[in-house]
Design a protein around this nucleic acid. Structure first.
Lengths: 141, 141
DNA sequence: CAGCATCCGAAAAGATACTG
DNA sequence: CAGTATCTTTTCGGATGCTG
């Protein structure tokens, strides 16, 4: 979920009557979607959450979120590029690198937290619904 | 982002000292992650947002969120299974189907809204950060 | 230690054609 | 209209080997 499909602008669907957005800010809508995909990414969520308590080094983070080095690196680069984390390299040997949230990243963390809380609060409702749905769909066996 | 990797439990990483969760509710953590992935899915977000204003029919929804029919169907089935939307089929010909949020879905909608607002509020910060990052990474050319 | 590059299998998502 | 089924393309993500 790294980038959003470029061809999905709201305006070019046949039969679409253009009631969804003002004609001007289609680029903005695209960016919102792109950012939403970014921010809603599994590893992003986990990393932001992990860094909320304290800054961490690469392998600490890796252990904590359970990501492969490749995914963690990619996620961290994106977060850094987006201004959500800062990467600090200590000129030691071997090198030590730590990551911490910026104020922007911290503010995202709070928002993510509300999502987290929703899941925690309504988990049971969802699970009961699933059981009912599955039983309704497959009454036999 | 349909399902979460089953092997990523927080507790089995080397060097992990177990300070993140109580030893008992690992299953719960797994479910939280699974639900988070579900709920943080791009299409889910878009669909829930689209249905917040009013109920919509399949193709209206399709046009509004810009999903392929395949993705929309899958997303709607999941939302229905999770008890977040209700699917109503009108016995007409040709058939008309509309979708609307349940109270549970509506409560998620509010949470999603906060994510949306974050993106909207900090979009510009992110974009400026990106420009700076990219310029720093590629000073030549 | 932190990371980049490459390869490869698995999963996701788009396009297309067909149906009640 | 609202799907299902199938095919192809794209992306994800783990494994491995190599650097400073």
């Amino acid at each position: 979920m790294q980038n959003v499909n470029p061809q999905e602008g709201t305006a070019e669907f046949p039969g679409h009557r253009g009631e969804t957005v003002a004609p001007d800010d289609e680029a903005k809508v695209a960016l919102v979607r792109e950012l939403l995909s970014r921010v809603a990414d599994k590893w992003t969520l986990l990393v932001v959450d992990a860094l909320e308590e304290s800054e961490l080094r690469f392998n600490q983070l890796r252990a904590k979120v359970g990501a492969s080095q490749k995914m963690l690196t990619k996620t961290l680069r994106q977060l850094e590029r987006d201004g959500l984390v800062v990467r600090r390299v200590h000129p030691t040997v071997p090198p030590a690198v730590d990551y911490r949230l910026t104020p922007l990243g911290l503010s995202l963390g709070e928002t993510v937290c509300s999502l987290w809380l929703w899941v925690d609060a309504h988990m049971n409702d969802v699970q009961r619904s699933r059981v009912a749905f599955d039983r309704a769909a497959r009454p036999e066996a």
